[in-house]
Every structure is written in structure tokens, then in C-alpha cells.
Amino acid sequence: MARVKFLCDVERCIDCSGCVVACKEGHHVPVGVNRRRVITLDQGKPGEKSISVSCMHCADAPCIAVCPVDAIYQRDDGIVLVNKKTCIGCGYCFMACPFGAPQFPKGNVFGARGAMDKCTFCAGGPEEDFSAEEKRLYGQNRIAEGKVPLCAGMCATKALLAGDADVVADVYRHRVFQRGSGVNAWGWSKAYKE
């Protein structure tokens, strides 16, 4: 079975944050919760680069390892999902995650964190596919519809790639062969030579 992967091409990302907005709007993510964010380094200086970061759907995910109630699980295709009905909002996954992916909406009781929310790779959750409950808790299930995740689908510069890891790697490798990367990819002439 294919394994899914996100890849953000830093030579193409222009920090438009369209992926962030698409994700928030498409899944009706509450205010204060960001399943995806864009990080920019060296802003305003030559060599400025941006990258879009969300849950990396790690192979050996630390969040799954630390969850005290086993609310987080991994599908065969590598997508890491959370069962919000099992989650107790303890925040251990946030402490274990190197990428700050798990997010917590404010709960109602004593300012307690609500159930963890994170990038689902647009694959919904443990509820039945396309059910109202799934949509309410986790947002759209575009993977079950056969579509790529919203963020990658709408990325204007196609910097953000998502899908079968082998195909994503092929697309990126092809790009690097054509334009170079890092130092070699810098500048207008490289982009418009052909």
C-alpha cells in the first residue's frame, strides 16, 4: 500500500498562507486552532524562504507513543488520526511533537483543553466516511473522495505537494534536476531560462 507524504518545496513557497486559510475554512476549524502554518526565515533579506508546516504524519509518531488513552492511531497509508471521543486533552502529544502539530481548542470546564485537533491529511477521522459526525468533528474527508488535501490542492505555486510518497518524491526530484536547488536555484535567470 502506498504511503502518503507532505512535501513543501521551499524554492516555490511564497508565504501567501493560502494553505492555512483553505484548511481553516474548508474544515471549519475553530479560531485559535491552526492545523497548518507557514514559517518564514530571513524575512526581508536576500535568501528569504518560507515553508508550510503541519502534522508530518510521522512513521514512528511520538504522539501515538505518549498518548495515555491511545486516542491517536495510524492508518496503513501512514495518515495519523485522532479519535476526539477518546481524547482527554492532556496535551502530552503536544509536548512530544517536534512540529507543534497538535492543537487544542478551549474547553468548557475550568479552562481545560478540549479534544486535540490536528491535520487529518483531509482523511476525516474514525467515524463513518462522509457522516455528519465525521464532518462536525474532523472536517471534510477528501481522501475518501479521491482528492488531494485542501492545502496542497489550492497551493498557487504548487509548492505544497501531497499524496503517494513515491509520486511526490518523483515530482520534486524532476523539479530539482530542472532548476537546481539551494544556491543553484537562486535568481530570475534560473526560473525563466527555458
Binding site: 498518548c67 495515555p68 488513552v69 486533552g89 470546564v109 481545560a112
Partner: peptide, 16 residues
């Protein structure tokens, strides 16, 4: 030992 009890409302209540 939340996973032993299956998490959910019971363990959430324990946390509160």
C-alpha cells in the same frame, strides 16, 4: 492507565 479504561468521558472526568 487511561488506555486501560478506554479514555473518553470517564478519564476526562478524572482529569477535571
Amino acid at each position: 492507565f487511561g488506555s486501560f479504561f478506554g479514555g473518553g468521558t470517564f478519564i476526562r472526568l478524572a482529569r477535571y
